[in-house]
Write a protein that binds this DNA or RNA. Structure first.
Lengths: 220, 220
DNA sequence: GTTTGTGAAGGATTTCACAGCA
DNA sequence: TGCTGTGAAATCCTTCACAAAC
């Protein structure tokens, strides 16, 4: 459905916009692995070593990286620091990103409290809920705001990401509001497949779907 | 890396074990969508309608289903009830599955409290942690057990799934213990790519990775 | 008329294999 | 010698398009 032409030889100048989406989705994995090597004070890694750790072929790693530039040295491998920095820049992880979280029930509060976002420079700068009983309460150090304030907050707080933690029944309306407000990236915790325009990216977090696709193999 | 031959024409009798993994991963999505139609008392759906809701092509849905059997009627579509039941059976969702959760910190307690698992017949029947300060405490109605009891509990409680909510540093050892105990399906919340034998399935839940692969497109 | 199920075609992704460089 | 970067080959996955069924 999403058109993702492989694209021929590319302009190395701007980080290749024709890179397949699967490849882009693997880059954060590389970044994470490189951080780990960095922590262990490893200075240089080969695609072989990366592949071993990540359980993928060295060829795939090299091919993936080649969409964006030439980061290695023949006979040696990749400088961990440099490759990490390059990939972060390519992914846009050299800045921080503001996010809003919508749905301040049990799940929303747990997600809002997760320290992993801030650690990677994703900042939750606003919290919303439709329930008057919750509005005004504090979650961490954020006040829970009414949905009416969403569009305004997206503008004034430079919110680029919506984190949706409402029940499935409300997910579509909430995502529609986010999209209408100009948000083009949604992290969707609701067990629901929303319909969005094709320039909006949605990533689903659904542990139940993950489990349900493993039982097939357990059954055997 | 994982060998997944497409397989030629198949034996319709046993639910095709040669179905590509991507296809298996989409089946739960269909199941969820069908439940939604069922709730709205829809009796029959076409691949067109399913595709519209899920934002995928009707052809893909038909092809996916065709790996497992012939569930539709030409000119009419699919009986919602029947297709839902068939897919659940194929995925092994006609029984309940027991899981253990390892790591009873903030994240582990939040995951254990999530009602979505039980709703889909995944039962968390044991909780573990390495920290003596936590062992013995109750989480929901489960006592937190020491890691030494893991292998025994997997056997005696028929645990087929491990849910890993420990910090990244401990993820590999914990997963090794699960695998050694005979667990072949792991839901991994730790921001770490574990190494497992190829007959063990791992699904990662990592909201940070999900966000990091969207910023690439926001940057543009 | 409508919609499935499916070979065949078309695309996309992965892997191979090796020239070229350190 | 060791490892990258990359065309070409192989594989895998999706879409097309239509005969068959209702």
């Amino acid at each position: 459905m999403t058109t993702n032409p492989q694209g021929g030889p590319f302009d190395p100048q701007p980080d290749d916009l024709g890179a397949p989406e699967v490849v882009v989705q693997r880059l954060p994995l590389y970044v994470r692995m490189l951080s780990q090597f960095e922590q262990q004070s490893v200075e240089v890694v080969s695609s072989e070593q990366l592949g071993q750790q990540l359980q993928m072929t060295p060829a795939q790693i090299r091919k993936d990286l080649s969409y964006f530039g030439r980061f290695g040295k023949q006979g040696r491998g990749y400088n961990v620091r440099r490759l990490s920095a390059e990939l972060r820049r390519i992914l846009g992880l050299d800045t921080s990103w503001n996010a809003a979280i919508i749905g301040m029930g049990r799940l929303g509060r747990a997600v809002a409290a997760y320290p992993g976002f801030a650690r990677e420079r994703f900042r939750i700068v606003a919290a919303f809920d439709a329930d008057p009983a919750v509005i005004g309460a504090r979650v961490g150090d954020l006040p829970v705001r009414p949905m009416e304030e969403l569009a305004g907050a997206v503008q004034s707080l430079d919110i680029k990401i919506g984190i949706v933690t409402v029940p499935a029944q409300q997910a579509q309306v909430v995502i529609d509001m986010l999209v209408a407000a100009g948000v083009r990236a949604v992290l969707n915790y609701a067990p629901y497949s929303p319909q969005v325009p094709e320039d909006v990216k949605v990533r689903a977090i659904d542990p139940v779907l993950a489990l349900q696709s493993m039982t097939y193999y357990l059954k055997g």
